[in-house]
Nucleic acid binder design. Structure first.
Lengths: 204, 204
DNA sequence: ATTTGAATTAACTATTTGGTTAACACACCT
DNA sequence: AGGTGTGTTAACCAAATAGTTAATTCAAAT
């Protein structure tokens, strides 16, 4: 019965991830998580004392899946061109594996912004100024890029990667897609987005 | 006591809007809405039979506040240049007045995609192919725009407008902003976004 | 074989919460 | 002044739900 510990705990986390990601903290039910994991509800409390702590585990896992790669975009020393061409497709691929994750994180951040503030403070992220901002600034100073606040560009890049997943139902209805078409749309996006965004910052 | 009807009903809708927009259906509490409206909880049921119907009213109101303007972007006959330069700032202004609205709508759509499908079907939106897509296609055929699927551009434009509000807590932390700085950021965005996006589709 | 202790379960508890109801208030009409 | 009906409230109810507990199973140590 040694392996069972990790097996049960893993089943719980996986089920909790599914439910929390789709329904958020308020919409999630402990019973539903237990059912999805195929175990008794008391087990959830046996391994994770409370709904709050189970949620905390899922939420931290979620942050761990988006932010490291995000940081590597922000902090890369590479020229922006290579940086974006490499990381945008990789980032979209990462999100594709957990399509509900961005919406989940954004919704829970809106519900409780202090959590993020505290986490950032407790982890002690010194939050150095992103190098990509400096790169953009340099390109502008040299007259290669158009004059737009680097922060605006940065947010636009993130928006372009993340938004389609957050707005999937809307996009599907607006453009008349089924799930397969939507998947093709995302794959196409991986290819075309770097070109579009880079073209956006370059001077004519 | 004639005027009281509309006054109470208006107070309820306003309170419900505040609470639903911030917390979503699952996180909202009828008692909290009643408190925020400063009236008895039974009044909510007196005017709107159930939580579901109260939510429905708020949700439809929300759709009514985003989609008409969205449609006018999609369906405009104007050249894209003028279209975007005019509507992006106007759209951002609209969202600024109800900053929690986009996140609310997106979250509730994820929670229950059928609702949207049914609404669209029931309203009988024939969902004609957006003219802006044709405009983009034409520009590409004429060699003025770079070769990128018009749908990708369209989603990027929407993403650029909407995402900052959905991700406000994240943006604030990542870029070290307080609420005032964030507001300035949005105002700056209104000015710079059309330029950036138009530059993105134009050939060198 | 017996004991031990962690893993697991069914049944239970306390609280929250959407919804109801019966009484009350009060403007309006006659 | 008295009756009528809508608006409003406090108290209540039933269902849902997070969390608890006591009993059970079972692998591993003795």
């Amino acid at each position: 019965m040694e392996q069972e510990i990790t097996i049960s705990e893993e089943k719980i986390i996986e089920a909790a991830r599914n439910v929390f990601h789709r329904k958020g903290f308020d919409g999630a039910r402990m019973q539903e998580i237990a059912d999805e994991a195929g175990i008794n509800k008391a087990m959830l409390h046996y391994y994770f004392r409370s709904k709050d702590q189970l949620f905390e585990a899922v939420f931290k896992e979620a942050l761990g899946r988006i932010f490291p790669m995000l940081l590597s975009i922000l902090m890369s020393d590479e020229p922006i061109e290579e940086n974006l061409k490499k990381f945008i497709p990789a980032y979209i691929d990462t999100i594709k594996k957990h399509p509900y994750l961005p919406g989940f994180v954004l919704h829970e951040m809106t519900r409780n912004p202090e959590r993020l503030t505290n986490m950032v403070r407790s982890v002690g992220v010194a939050s150095a100024p992103p190098k990509i901002l400096q790169q953009l600034q340099k390109g502008m100073d040299e007259g290669r890029y158009i004059a737009i606040a680097p922060e605006q560009i940065l947010v636009s890049v993130l928006a372009a990667c993340i938004f389609p997943f957050v707005a999937k139902p809307m996009v599907k209805v607006a453009l008349g897609m089924d799930d397969e078409k939507f998947d093709q749309f995302i794959n196409q996006r991986k290819e075309q987005l770097p070109e579009f965004l880079l073209n956006g910052i370059k001077k004519k």
